[in-house]
Amino acid sequence: MNVHAAFHQTTAAVPPIVQVSNLVRSFDAGTNVLDHLDLTIGDGEFVALLGRSGSGKSTLLRTLAGLDAAPEGTVSVPPQRAVVFQEPRLIPWKPVWANVALGLGASDARERAVAALTEVGLGHRLDAWPLTLSGGEAQRAALARALVRQPKLLLLDEPFAALDALTRLKTQGLVASLWMTHRPAILLVTHDVDEALLLADRVLVLDKGRIALDWRVNLERPRRHAQRGFAELRAGLLRELGIDEEEEGVEPLESSVAALIKAQSGGNPSPVDRDLIVSHVGVSL
């Protein structure tokens, strides 16, 4: 099985839209969550960022979103950015359309909001209160709220993690098609290897505060699990992450990632091991 035929070390061919160099973020003195991290994302590129919990994935995303100031290093991002979080974070006292139109300011804000909501299939819930939406609908509204801003960089912070398996698949499909239509650069933070391979052009793994792995995914779209090369890519990626799916169950190897999963599966169930056990989609990191 020749995995490396499908993987190529990244060389950005498109003009970069995100450039991060030497980024350092630390919460307590001594431990750096992000340790001299370098990252370049090309215009219109779909990048998935994997990493164990606590590896700094979300910290990196928040830094790119401008939510946390970067104390050290240089971060260059486009001004048109939008974020979709794990929770939809809709404003409960504004109807769905007003949530999408919030902050647009223009006189055609409502029309643009309606168009965006129609695009994500929520044209019939324009005047609904956010708390009456299902989890999937709310997350689609959050996507519409991000897209209506025509972002050059769309930051997705585990946006599918709180959805049930079926809704997750549908919403992943929606994100893929929205990306095809609008072509923003996307940074998707996830802990799901399959999700990363289904959606992204490039898969990054964050470990010890740096990009430990940066691989290009050359698979035809739309992608399916049964697709030629998908299983090989997945096996290769998992092996790089220190998880060998050939063995019985998920038997952790020596890497720190695997050790963490082993430690967690004995303790409190976290989203990570819940997915490991019950995921319908596949093996998660």
Partner: peptide, 27 residues
């Protein structure tokens, strides 16, 4: 605080955050 954060990623100014999120939320 997550709503405030979401509001600031939508480009709301301090004054707009108070008007659209803080005050209606305190109502």
């Amino acid at each position: 605080a997550k709503l405030i954060e979401a509001g600031s990623t939508l480009g709301l100014t301090q004054r707009e955050l108070v008007r659209h999120i803080v005050l209606p939320g305190a109502l």
